[in-house]
């Protein structure tokens, strides 16, 4: 009975929305398996596909993904690999090319972005009709675990600097746990050229300048348990360069 009612309601509202979750991976064999399990656990009555963009990880990430395809089906988990490590920004556009959803969700594979928040992204979008829903760590209900004082300090400094200079209208610029309307992501991603953290910042700042409706939901961020971070190096210098670049071009 209940199911029938639900279906009728859905027919009234039109076609059920389809979501494509793009997950870039590089050496995440354990994390991707756990992530896929958790996504299926938390998105029970949502139509979605997972698109894994793996950059030729030497640790056997792709073998694990193929095993997962056998469990969950090749139509639910798509492996769209690239031959070698080519960076995050292009990984998203590569995944986007193969996505068939009305909405695109972008998240990291390392479990710092927990799938239990996916329903709140989807709900927020449905309630507000937003073009972008972005996860923020810096509001009530959000938070970070596993950062030392230095990491917190740079994060705060970077955030205050960007807020004062760019007036972006969102509280968490470098978080990359986001839901996009498909057309919006296609529009924004093509005008972005930065790499690393700056790429996430550029995406949201450009979207905000273009006047897209952006909403935020609180998320928590637990530093990765398995594997190692691929960003790093001269992060601060890159960040400052990115800030200047955005000041001049947006």
């Amino acid at each position: 009975m209940e199911e029938e009612e639900e279906q009728q309601q859905q027919q009234k509202k039109g076609k059920k929305k389809y979501y494509s979750i793009i997950v870039p991976t590089y050496n995440e064999r354990l994390n991707i398996a756990l992530l896929v399990y958790l996504i299926f656990k938390h998105l029970r009555d949502v139509d979605f596909e997972i698109i894994v963009v793996d950059d030729g990880s030497p640790d056997g990430t792709q073998e694990v993904v193929k095993q997962l395809q056998e469990v969950y089906g090749e139509d639910r988990i798509l492996l769209r690999a690239r031959p070698r490590k080519m960076g995050l920004g292009t990984a998203y556009s590569h995944g986007l090319k193969h996505a068939s959803g009305d909405f695109i969700i972008i998240m990291d594979a390392d479990l710092s972005h927990h799938p239990k928040y996916l329903p709140s992204f989807i709900r927020k979008q449905q309630e507000t009709g937003a073009s972008i829903v972005t996860g923020t760590r810096y509001v009530r209900g959000g938070g970070v675990h596993g950062w030392n004082l230095m990491r917190k300090l740079t994060s705060r400094g970077a955030n205050v600097l960007a807020q004062t200079l760019l007036w972006p209208g969102v509280s968490d610029l470098t978080g990359s746990f986001r839901l996009y309307q498909r057309s919006v992501l296609e529009d924004v991603i093509n005008s972005c050229v930065s790499k690393g953290y700056v790429f996430q910042m550029e995406m949201i700042v450009r979207a905000s300048r273009k006047g897209y409706h952006i909403e935020e939901v609180p998320v928590t961020f637990v530093d990765r348990v398995f594997g190692s971070s691929k960003l790093g190096g001269s992060e601060i210098v890159e960040y400052l360069k990115g800030l200047v670049y955005l000041l001049l071009t947006t």
Binding site: L111, R137, V225
Partner: peptide, 26 residues
């Protein structure tokens, strides 16, 4: 702003515990 932000930095130790449970379950 940096100082206040640092003092009020939102942390979530309980989330790490929950994640460990999810990992074991997974």
């Amino acid at each position: 702003m940096v100082g206040v932000g640092l003092m009020l930095f939102p942390t979530c130790p309980q989330e790490a515990v929950l994640l460990q449970q999810d990992i074991a379950e997974g």
